[in-house]
Design a protein around this nucleic acid. Structure first.
Length: 480
RNA sequence: CGGGGCGUAGCGCAGUUUGGUAGCGCACAGCGUUCGGGACGCUGGGGUCGUGGGUUCGAAUCCCACCGUCCCGACCA
């Protein structure tokens, strides 16, 4: 009887059906819900809080590296988008068009931005005249619409939130350095705040951004051993500046086109947190971005009811004042056990239990979400202990992610091994590639794996596919 | 966008084969007993059966179209 009830409440185990687990945990933890339009979701308060934390931490890093925020229009005239053909061809299948204003048909239809290179390029051509105007270092936080055919909450939705940086520079070298700089900002951000270990590198021609000279990325391995791109940084060369006529007079009084970059990360990050850290009990958030860092569960039995709650509330207040994200779950209709499971499912890093036993001894019990370790702590040293444990959780979660990535990265020389690993173990395959797109295509057709990142172009080896001399060391994986 | 599955109360489902006026568990509300790992009893509220059309005396059930969602392929942050 009790077992049956428990079964109904529980989510599908991650190990038995990853996709189903993913969708269930997102809905049950109230991160997001489906909207009535295809491929669109509502990000609920608990999910949005993670995005807000990501946003404020990343925004700080973006500003520290010299960028300023601005906002450009949601709509882009078709003629502007059409100026760059490669770019348009890359995006046209997924552009949403506005054709009417009120009842009147527009003379020129407007694209709902699938990305903002075109509108920003157009404005930069007005703003940039001299080398003295450079560099231009602008970032915007915005929503993006791409009419995707296959969607999944957070990972690929028709509308998503992101940050897109767009910079213009005097020299190629400076723009290339900017591209690398932002790539490393992303890598450090994902690893230190999201506690997800990533690889970074260059995209192949086939995988790169439409219109870019070079696309770099950070890629992580999710716990089903498929790869997820978590951020991109593009070196755009003078591609867009020629198209949008972004010219400046250089130090020798010659007219030049600017060198550009663009880079972005999106709400996909939230999906990555779910898939990288979650387990059969639900979500598990790293403390740095967790919506709640500490949940206080009072054990208030019988006559202790009057005594436990005030103490719990005092603890909540003092932790709150110290800047911890903390809540007290004082709901009477649920038992402590129920609350334990509930908050574990919602991924709160640390649970604080306080009951009659603890109050007698001036203690509290702290339980970690990531490894369930339990310890009794004196109420007098709660703050320090919690601070310490939270930082341990952050570190341990990253170490676990790093180990997972390393354990699931396979160095392969023979094509036969490549195929069998992709069929069974999955994960990253680190191998040599000759650079021929035909090999890339064959590998994709045979195994569904794609090149996630080129990590070195100077190594010497034999192509895992054709066996010819190869200069590229690359990571392959099945990707989201 | 192709191939397949699903859509019935907030969630999970039964009912559809064989048409006859909608049900179960959980959740929710009230009262009481409980509370250190998903408590229990009694009482109660909640449904245009995804949407629109058709067949029929009568449709959750049969037919058509559309929408949404999930899985597998082709395309992508």
């Amino acid at each position: 009887m009790k077992d049956k009830n428990r079964f109904v409440e529980k989510i599908t185990p991650k190990s038995s059906d990853f996709s189903r687990w993913y969708v269930e945990v997102i809905r049950k933890a109230e991160l997001a819900d489906y909207a009535p339009m295809k491929g669109m979701m509502v990000i609920r308060p608990y999910g949005y809080a993670i995005w807000e934390n990501i946003k404020s931490l990343l925004d700080k890093r973006i500003k520290e590296t010299g960028h300023k925020n601005a906002y450009f229009p949601l709509f882009i005239p078709e003629s502007l988008l059409k100026k760059e053909t490669e770019h348009l061809e890359g995006f046209s299948p997924e552009v949403a068009w506005v054709t009417h204003g009120g009842d009147d048909e527009l003379e020129e239809r407007l694209a709902v931005r699938p990305t903002s290179e075109a509108i920003i390029g157009n404005m930069y051509s007005k703003w940039i005249n001299s080398y003295r105007d450079l560099p231009v270092l602008i970032n915007q936080w915005a929503n993006i619409v791409r009419w995707e055919k296959v969607t999944r909450p957070f990972l690929r939705t028709a509308e998503f939130l992101w940050q897109e940086g767009h910079t213009a520079h005097e020299t190629q070298k400076e723009a290339e350095e900017e591209t690398q700089k932002m790539l490393s900002v992303y890598k450090e951000f994902v690893e230190s705040e999201l506690a997800i270990s990533v690889i970074s590198g260059l995209k192949s021609e086939r995988e790169k951004f439409a219109g870019a000279s070079a696309t770099y990325c950070v890629e992580a391995l999710m716990s089903d051993k498929k790869a997820l791109q978590m951020g991109t940084s593009h070196f755009l060369g003078q591609h867009f500046s020629r198209v949008f006529d972004i010219k400046f007079e250089d130090r020798n009084q010659k007219l030049q086109y600017v060198w550009q970059t663009s880079w972005g990360v999106s709400t996909r990050m939230v999906g990555a947190l779910v898939m990288a850290h979650g387990d059969d009990s639900g979500l598990c958030f790293p403390p740095r971005v967790a919506p709640l860092q500490v949940i206080i569960v009072p054990i208030s039995i019988g006559e202790w009811k009057q005594n436990v709650l005030p103490v719990a509330e005092n603890i909540r207040q003092s932790l709150d004042q110290k800047g911890f994200r903390v809540e007290l779950d004082a709901r009477e209709q649920f038992t402590p056990g129920w609350k334990f499971s509930e908050w574990e499912m919602k991924g709160v890093p640390l649970r604080l239990e306080i009951g009659p036993r603890d109050i007698k001894n001036n203690n509290a019990v702290l339980v970690r979400r990531d490894n369930r370790n339990k310890q009794v702590v004196s109420q007098d040293e709660l703050e320090n202990k919690i601070q310490e444990i939270l930082s341990h959780i952050q570190k341990d979660m990253f170490d676990k992610s790093l180990k997972f990535r390393e354990d699931n990265t396979h160095e392969v020389e023979k094509y036969q091994d490549f195929e069998s690993i992709m069929k069974s173990k999955m994960g990253f395959i680190k191998a040599f590639w000759c650079g021929n797109p035909d090999c890339e295509t064959k590998i994709k057709e045979d195994t569904k794996a794609t090149i996630r990142a080129v990590v070195s172009e100077k190594e010497k080896g034999k192509c895992v596919c054709c066996g010819k001399d190869a200069g590229f060391l690359v990571y392959f994986a099945k990707a989201y």
